[in-house]
Design a protein around this nucleic acid. Structure first.
Length: 228
DNA sequence: GCCCAGGTGGGTA
DNA sequence: TACCCACATGGG
C-alpha cells in the first residue's frame, strides 16, 4: 500500500469537511456543461455565467442554433467570458463535432471512453482538461480532471507524481481511487475551491490545512487539526 | 492601476 | 520536446 493510496481518500475527507459539497454543474443540461467547459478556460466562472445567460437569452444554447449563427454573432454573445473571438471559434468546432452525432448526446454514450476522449481532443479548442471536464461533468464518465489548482495542491502536499505531466497527475488520482464519477466530480471541485481559498503565490502556504499531510507524515495526519 | 481566473493552439529553438 | 506568447473581459 503506497502512501498515496491512503492519503488521497484522506485528503478528500479533509477537503469535504473543510468546504462542504461543491455541487459543480448539478442537474445542468449536458450541452450547457460542455459550453461552460470551453468558456471557463482561463476565465473566472462569474464571467462564464454572463456569457451562458447571453446565449440562453438569444436561444443559442443549443448545437443547431450555434451552428446557424455566424462566428461574429457567437463572439458577441460570449464576449463577457473573455478571449471571445477564439472561444466563438471553439464553440463552433464543438457543435460541428456534435453534428456528426445529430446533436444527440446519448449517442456519445455508446462510444468507448478512450475513443471518445481521443475524439474530443481532436476538436479545436478542446485540450486535456476541457475534454475530461466534458467527459466527467457532462457525460458522467469516471475521468479525473486535472487543472492548475490540482497540480499546485498535489505539489505542495508532496505526493509523488511521475511524470509531471497532465497524464502523470491524472494517473495519481485514478490509480488510488475507485472509478466513481460522483467522487471525481466532487474531489476536483474541492481541490479548486481549496486552491482558491489558500494563497496562490506562496509555494508553501503555512495556513494550508493539507500541507501538514506532507510535512509531518501520515502518522500525524490524523492528529493534525484542519486550519483554514 | 494591477492581478488573476475551473487553458489551448501555434510558433520557435 | 520544451518553453513562450496571444487570446480579453470583469471582479477584487
Amino acid at each position: 500500500m503506497s502512501r498515496e493510496s491512503s492519503l488521497l481518500p484522506e485528503i478528500y475527507d479533509r477537503l469535504l469537511q473543510a468546504y462542504g459539497p461543491q455541487h459543480w454543474w448539478p442537474a445542468e443540461e449536458p450541452f450547457e456543461v460542455m459550453v461552460g467547459a470551453v468558456l471557463t478556460q482561463s476565465t473566472a466562472w462569474t464571467n462564464v455565467e454572463k456569457a451562458i445567460d447571453s446565449l440562453k437569452s438569444a436561444g443559442a444554447l443549443e448545437p443547431a442554433a450555434l451552428r446557424r449563427l455566424s462566428l461574429h454573432e457567437v463572439a458577441v454573445l460570449v464576449r463577457s467570458s473573455g478571449f471571445y473571438h477564439v472561444k466563438a471559434r471553439k464553440l463552433k468546432a464543438l457543435v460541428e463535432w456534435l453534428g456528426a452525432y445529430r446533436d444527440d448526446l446519448r449517442r456519445l454514450r455508446d462510444r468507448g471512453l478512450p475513443e471518445l476522449r481521443r475524439e474530443l481532443l481532436g476538436v479545436y479548442g478542446v485540450g486535456e482538461e476541457t475534454a475530461d471536464s466534458i467527459l466527467l461533468y457532462a457525460l458522467d464518465r469516471p475521468v479525473f480532471v486535472i487543472d492548475a489548482y490540482t497540480r499546485r495542491t498535489v505539489d505542495r502536499i508532496g505526493l509523488a507524481v511521475e511524470p509531471k505531466s497532465y497524464a502523470g497527475y491524472q494517473a495519481l488520482f485514478m490509480r488510488h481511487l475507485p472509478p466513481d464519477a460522483r467522487l471525481f466530480n466532487e474531489y476536483h471541485a474541492l481541490l479548486v475551491q481549496h486552491g482558491k481559498t489558500t494563497c496562490r503565490k506562496v509555494p508553501r502556504c503555512p495556513e494550508c490545512c493539507l500541507l501538514k499531510v506532507c510535512h509531518y507524515g501520515q502518522a500525524t495526519v490524523k492528529a493534525a487539526r484542519v486550519v483554514l
